[in-house]
Design a protein around this nucleic acid. Structure first.
Lengths: 233, 233
DNA sequence: ATTATGATTGATTGATCAATCAAGCCCCGG
DNA sequence: CCGGGGCTTGATTGATCAATCAATCATAAT
């Protein structure tokens, strides 16, 4: 896992920082070159084009997920559920140190690029899968405090949604408060799950023991009042 | 609220669509002009520059929030909590009809632009505040099924986080599944809140009646193992 | 009919964009 | 000592970018 080239690493580092700060499209190659102290020929020696640079940046994020995100969260506590919240705390830190301007670097790119770069989307999906996969591992280690019939994968997706959605709101608000609010509600949910798992199923909710996590019939939303043929999506 | 100019409206509509599909930076003025069938002079007659166009698009989204998002959700059910999930269903629909490529148009811009356009950020914050504000209204109308001490604003922030975070994951995965998973967990949370509110506080959780929504001491995440001076954020 | 105002036309500007490439440099093997 | 491949240099390309503006058109008020 030794770095392939010092120059290559510096390019990736600066590109990652700029993509994170300004987005992919808004970042010019020339800016990356200036900040990295490199000439254009060197960059194109390592990366055939801007797309390939994006792929490299995403691969770097994937490689840094473990040492910079997951391991710190794991080191913060031996309690598996506290690790989930320590993970959220990592992103909270990132928001605070940047004055609520920088959130999850992969999340930014995910929304900006959509499916216009298939290879990039696959990597971002891989990143999220690794993220939620680890959360699932932790949830599995907290068996005693979670209902047996709870779907861990779904819950891990909720945790990630809370993180990404909380980061987005904090950035829009210029305040950490919406992030904290969402996390506090997630904490409340975990508490309720724990107290539910502690009860005897038979006495907990009468005849609806399992119903609390069954999917619900999707309600059909009414059409927009304006019928002039507008499509919003 | 009559449209100021037909040309202006067409520009805004196409700009909104393109910003949604490709993002702000990746969308060129010339593309907007071509798609709207308008010459550059006309665009610059109504909007001093691309920034002003962005503001116009965001104001348009703010104006469409009520008729195209909130009212349909309200029309789907008279039950206030079902309205919350009908609201999420609106975005689910948007994901499905676009093949999981298009989510919340404001959310996209929020992460792409960050705080580099203060006026735009203020509008996006206003949009989110209107969105969560309406959810709070619904939650207030469901008093009987929610614990009295529950913070409605926090819960509304969670609902928005689930939507935005679910949309992001669905787009990255190219599948609706992560969105549905996060929403299913939110449903489970609401069910647990309802059953909690039905119990006598004294017998519900022993001596920790209110503790389930108190904020928790933030855990200190361990520093990254690599001590070579790297800053991830 | 005259004038004023708002809206539209579309060629054009200079700046910036991603990307190219011939030339040279450095270091190591032979 | 030579040769060659990995890496760097940096001027340069054509394309595209946001933005400009003098001229023209449409409409309505006077």
């Amino acid at each position: 896992m030794t770095p392939k080239s010092e120059t290559r690493e510096r390019i990736l580092e600066e590109a990652a920082r700029l993509f994170h700060e300004q987005g992919y499209s808004a970042t010019g190659i020339s800016t990356i070159l200036r900040r990295a102290g490199v000439n254009s020929g060197s960059l194109y020696h390592f990366f055939p084009g801007k797309d390939a640079l994006l792929i490299g940046v995403l691969e770097r994020h994937l490689g840094l997920l473990e040492p910079f995100i997951l391991l710190p969260a794991e080191g913060a506590s031996s309690d598996p559920i506290e690790r989930v919240f320590a993970l959220l705390e990592v992103y909270r830190r990132g928001l605070l140190v940047s004055g609520c301007t920088r959130g999850c670097p992969v999340g930014n790119l995910a929304l900006e690029l959509g499916d216009r770069k298939p290879r990039a989307r696959a990597l971002m999906n891989e990143y999220f899968a690794a993220w939620t996969g680890r959360v699932q591992t932790w949830l599995g280690a907290a068996d005693d405090r979670l209902p047996a019939q709870l779907d861990r994968e779904s819950l891990s997706r909720l945790v990630l949604a809370v993180m990404e959605g909380g980061v987005m709101q904090a950035r829009a608000a210029g305040s950490i408060d919406p992030f904290d609010a969402a996390v506090a509600q997630l904490r409340s949910y975990f508490r309720l799950l724990a107290s539910y798992s502690r009860r005897e199923p038979a006495e907990a909710f009468g005849s609806e023991e399992e119903s609390f996590l069954e999917p619900v019939e999707a309600a059909e939303p009414a059409e927009a009042a304006d019928a002039s043929g507008w499509r919003y999506w």
